[in-house]
Design a protein around this nucleic acid. Structure first.
Lengths: 149, 149
DNA sequence: TGTTGACCTTCCCATCCTGTCAAGGTTTAA
DNA sequence: TTAAACCTTGACAGGATGGGAAGGTCAACA
């Protein structure tokens, strides 16, 4: 049995986030001591580490809820886990594609920019351009920018 | 001269966001009619389109502030523009690397997962693993997940 | 002229995850 | 006993965007 600070250090999840995960129901409410301190078992820490690792892999909280349930279900089908993972991989790849499209556009533009003290600049010229007439747009990706998750 | 709705349609920036950009000082306060309606010139719309395109390229509002200033500065040095753009490219590439690391880890794990009705699952086993002992971690990237920009 | 519907205004709330800070209670070690 | 190091809840911020409520304005049509 340990305090939230110990559990945070042991799991790699900050005390703040542990309380947050509890508040949104991702993890069950912690047991409390007489003075209302949360206390955690090694098993609780195990759960927190699971959550931490899943976050590091970029899973959304919602997915983690599902993964946790499967993790604790001894009769789960691995297909269910795999499906969640592969759906996430698709989302990641879509985002990578968006970002790569931005990189490509910018590099195309920058390659034509002198980058000296003169004011002429194809990068600004492109930003300037009425939609559709822009030079660099091999990869037409925009819309939602970074992950909203 | 047009209302905010027209300006939004003409620029591709929602009325909501036009007001927001004004509130944070990215664009100057719009002129108003007698009844306090904002009104915009074609030139104003031109600015909004510039902002829109820059957002599509993933630039943060802060960068766009700088780009707008350079755009309007006839004596700018193209090097200044290029520097902002390349800094942004670096940030994008770092993010791409992070996401790609997640994808690689997940695909490694998934490739060893039967994905059938049996419960054994290396994906869960990895999430389960005490930090450091995990199988898939050729690309050690995690930490900050999606773009916080 | 009156009504209707499509605009516009401001202000507040929510998202998503995380950090920081404040005010106050508890525990522990010196 | 006191000070340090914990813990508690609650509030606020941030980045960019959407949603909605309550109320004012304008244009077209009967």
């Amino acid at each position: 049995m340990m305090n939230i600070g110990k559990a945070a250090a042991a799991s790699g999840v900050s005390a703040k986030m542990i309380r947050y995960y509890e508040s949104i129901g991702l993890i069950p409410p912690a047991r409390r001591t007489g003075s209302d301190y949360r206390c955690y078992t090694d098993e609780d820490v195990h759960v927190l580490r699971f959550v931490r690792r899943a976050r590091d892999l970029g899973f959304a909280i919602e997915d983690i809820t599902d993964l946790l349930a499967l993790w604790q279900d001894k009769h789960r089908a691995s297909a269910d886990v795999k499906r969640i993972a592969m759906k996430h991989v698709s989302a990641l790849e879509r985002k990578i594609g968006e970002l790569q499209g931005m990189v490509d556009s910018l590099q195309t533009l920058a390659s034509h920019c002198h980058g000296d003290e003169r004011p002429e600049c194809p990068i600004l010229a492109d930003l300037n351009a009425p939609a559709g007439e822009t030079a660099a747009r091999a990869t037409d990706v925009p819309k939602r920018r970074f992950g909203r998750r």
